[in-house]
Design a protein around this nucleic acid. Structure first.
Length: 430
DNA sequence: TCTGGGGTCCTAGGACCC
DNA sequence: TCTGGGGTCCTAGGACCC
């Protein structure tokens, strides 16, 4: 049994702000989303006033003022900086660390370390507080899901809240059963409101119910994710520590408007700005994109108004991280979906089909009009190079069209090792 | 003209997480 | 009047290909 710990900061954004502003202590504080629209972090005092996660700010503005509360616009540069310090301190307690989100981290320990983990949790919590000023909760368990559950107890249950540490491994079987019977199934990692309702109808209401349920039956009746969750709750690990994050699949830049917009020009300006931001992040990650997707949408809250939320993706002629072709694609996509007469509330850009910059040479995408030996040789060359670097992946190449032609069509094929020796298997070649 | 399996890609939607 | 942003995974149907 290899124990896991989950460490996460309490009310992370608010706690970051409090480190630098003494006047924010001991009073209700919320941090707001973009456009100051919603409350995305709440101090304990704000939670005590009944302010919910994601609640629109205009609904709580008066309440907050009545209690001398403060509402802050978000400062992501600050939170990002505090996050790196937090992760660095946490990482001192185990060589095996997974940074799970901006304020959460898993650690894994060796079986031999299991006995001393409660003390380690207390020490970790004290050191993080002393070195960063951030309060954290620590949950320890034999699986990631149980570490998460223990963390939930550490932060919310009176038995653990004072220490801020809950070690599932230290609990007796009777104590585990009692806590599990006390917790609704929605307290489990991966089970949200919708699933909790569906499970409730099936007679599974508490964590204890879910631990009792037969995983194979859950898989048949619901899905494999739920079956895994049930196994993890019983102490059978199904989720591994992911020390190296999996490659990114998409980069999103989207925003709501402060007020509805109606013209294509306004949408175009917003999309240009989103595209530029996404391109900056793309380059920072050392990636290129092969597909840009644009979406615009009316406000789902205005049920009295006609709704329209189209999406359009355009393949880039050449995978790129340059802003100019991306801007051009975004404008073209907008032209294909824009309809006058709607009040649009948000616009966004998604970059998809990401691959490492420089992994494929531009040569591959140059016009290769004549079919034949030269072309095959060139494709084969590149395939070797790509396969060498990536193993399996997606290869894009020009199948038809030419420099003077009007049709530039992209074809894509899944790359498999066989293709390096069997070039004839590639559609459009030879 | 009909028959058939095995695939990929795209759009859309639902669910979850932080 | 004002209702976040950035991600993941899964499913389904239609178009298209071999």
């Amino acid at each position: 049994m290899t124990p896991f710990a989950l460490i996460d900061a309490n009310n992370f954004y608010v706690s970051c702000e409090r480190v630098f502003d003494y006047h924010l202590r001991d009073r209700p504080v919320v941090v707001l989303s973009n456009n100051d629209g919603c409350c995305v972090a709440r101090s304990p005092e704000a939670k005590a006033l009944g302010i919910r996660m994601g609640q629109p700010f205009f609904e709580v503005r008066d309440l907050l003022a009545q209690h001398q509360g403060r509402a802050l616009s978000s400062n992501y540069a600050l939170y990002g900086d505090m996050s790196s310090r937090l992760m660095q301190v946490i990482g001192q307690f185990s060589p095996e660390q997974e940074v799970y989100s901006i304020d959460e981290s898993f650690l894994r320990f060796t079986p031999g370390e299991a006995a001393g983990l409660t003390a380690l949790g207390l020490a970790l919590r004290a050191r993080v507080l002393q070195w960063t000023g951030l309060p954290v909760g620590v949950g320890i368990g034999p699986t990631k899901t149980l570490a998460k559950l223990a963390n939930h107890l550490a932060k919310r249950h009176p038995d653990f809240a004072a220490a801020g540490v809950c070690n599932w491994l230290d609990l007796s079987a009777a104590a585990r059963a009692a806590y599990a019977a006390d917790l609704g199934v929605a307290a489990v990692w991966g089970i949200g409101g919708r699933w909790a309702a569906r499970l409730g109808q099936a007679g599974i209401q508490t964590v204890a119910d879910l631990r009792r349920a037969d995983p194979e039956g859950l898989r048949r009746r619901f899905n494999v994710v739920l079956a895994r969750t049930a196994l993890e709750l019983r102490g059978t690990p199904c989720l591994a520590l992911e020390e190296t994050p999996p490659p990114r699949q998409q980069i999103i830049a989207s925003r709501s408007f402060g007020q509805p917009v109606t013209t294509r020009a306004e949408l175009g300006e917003a999309l240009a700005s989103h595209t530029a931001r996404a391109a900056v992040r793309l380059r920072a990650a050392g990636l290129v994109t092969g597909l840009l997707q644009v979406s615009i949408a009316t406000s789902p809250f205005r049920e009295d108004e006609p709704q329209y939320h189209p999406t359009w993706g355009l393949a880039l002629p050449v995978p790129t991280a340059d802003t100019v072709p991306l801007l051009r694609a975004a404008r073209a996509a907008l032209g294909l979906i824009f309809r006058a007469g709607y009040r649009y509330q948000r616009a966004g850009v998604v970059l998809l089909d990401l691959s490492p910059a420089g992994a494929v040479t531009g040569d591959l995408f140059a016009p290769v009009a004549p079919a034949g030996a030269a072309r095959r040789a060139r494709l084969l060359d590149v395939l070797d190079g790509v396969n060498g670097r990536w193993g399996r992946g997606t290869l894009r190449y020009l199948a038809e069209g030419g420099p003077g032609g009007q049709t530039w069509r992209m074809r894509r094929e899944r790359l498999s090792p066989a293709y390096t020796t069997d070039w004839a298997g590639l559609p459009g070649v030879g």
